[in-house]
Design a protein around this nucleic acid. Structure first.
Lengths: 226, 226
DNA sequence: CGAAAGTTTGAGTTGCTTCAACCGCGGTGG
DNA sequence: CCACCGCGGTTGAAGCAACTCAAACTTTCG
């Protein structure tokens, strides 16, 4: 009982489900499933069929293209609490293209295909929200393509740092640097060297996962110049 | 009058609008606008606001990330008759990220944001179709990311050839090779050399935009092996 | 038919990768 | 309590795939 209340609250707090009415919300909450995944466990793998849409309750998930002929895998995106993933494939009848793996012990909410479709049919504003969500995803993939195709290592790193949420002039890597490197389409060695050069130029200071940004303007300048 | 009938027919033939009822269809058709774009003309540019969704009636459009600090532009996708583009940005209130340019004299149908939203609100199955369309787009962007990050020049070209519609063992490049190269994330020189090597290996023959595929199996093998 | 655009080819360059050694730190078990 | 292991990260050296640049050639278009 208490449990269900938690779910209502959790779902209700997500942008996707905001202003569903209470009835719709608790119907969704009632029909969803909890999925627990240990650190390093897979939620799904490329080729699996899509049962629905996952919402991260606690923990962290990475989506990645599995390695191909010996190349390392390519990280596509990270998802933390409150974020949803796996929606796109639901609307096509296709298997997943990517692997989903937990970076820490993670609790997920699985909303079944059927229920999502029902919500769409019942509430056009939910459909719109869903469309906005997919559009957002599309938008950020196009930006990733831009990053990988039009920017060098230095620029990718600067762009990443500048787009991170900042508290004052401090930001941090939420996951280890190997994964950041993969997301940016770089080798770990190259990421390390790029950070080092920026440190030498006194633009940032790096201490483990913490990065202090000393000079945003100068970084932006270097971003634009190459 | 005749004109309207053409539009009805055109729209009705698109997957997106199939099984809208006649009333909805002609309402959509009534409120849309025709847009003529000459070869090399721009439909919109990065930074422009999105008025709605474009459908290609005749001609061909390319979507591309404009050049950044002297790099060449990066082609994202091509669209031919019956295909829709520019939908994603409509659902966010964001400007376009890409340029849309006509590769030939082109006739487009512009469906206004308002009308699309109205159709979504009225007909959940339209919403679903829209969702499927965006999902499809997402799917193919992820595949592009895979291509660029996990495959070498040779594999990208093979992959592209094998995924082209084929009549018998003949396929053709719908646009010039510079643009294909950009779509694949290669320089024109590299694409030319990759095609040459495949020709030398007697796997294909290239004559201008026409490509004969001599040995699909061998190509697939080479695709998998690197 | 001449100019412009597209394509191929060769030669030289390069930014990033790979490979491998090394460091530091946190956890584990003797 | 300390030795050991293993993972994440850094650093150096060497290699390479693809790029750039530039010239020759071909096709397209006005």
């Amino acid at each position: 009982m208490r449990h269900k209340l938690n779910l209502d609250g959790l779902l209700g707090s997500l942008p996707l489900f905001r202003n569903l009415d209470a009835g719709q919300l608790s119907e969704l909450a009632g029909s969803c499933r909890e999925v627990r995944v240990p650190r390093h466990g897979h939620v799904f793998r490329r080729g699996d069929a899509a049962p629905g849409l996952y919402v991260v309750a606690v923990g962290q998930i990475k989506l990645a293209l599995p390695s191909l002929h010996g190349n390392p895998e390519k990280v596509v995106e990270f998802f933390g609490p409150g974020q949803a993933f796996g929606e796109a494939v639901m609307f096509l009848d296709r298997p997943y293209l990517v692997d989903a793996q937990a970076l820490e012990d993670t609790l997920l909410i699985l909303l079944g295909k059927k229920d999502i479709f029902a919500a769409i049919d019942r509430d056009p504003s939910f459909a719109r929200r869903m469309l906005a969500g997919l559009s957002m995803r599309l938008h950020s993939l196009v930006q990733d393509i831009e990053t990988v195709n039009l920017q060098n290592a230095q620029q990718r790193v600067i762009g990443y740092l500048l787009n991170r949420p900042r508290e004052g002039n401090l930001t941090r890597f939420a996951v280890n640097k190997n994964l950041i490197a993969s997301k940016l389409g770089l080798s770990p060695a190259t990421l390390s060297r790029a950070l080092q050069r920026l440190s030498e130029a006194a633009l940032i200071s790096v201490a483990g996962p913490e990065v202090v940004i000393h000079d945003v303007q100068a970084l932006q300048l270097r971003f634009a110049a190459g």
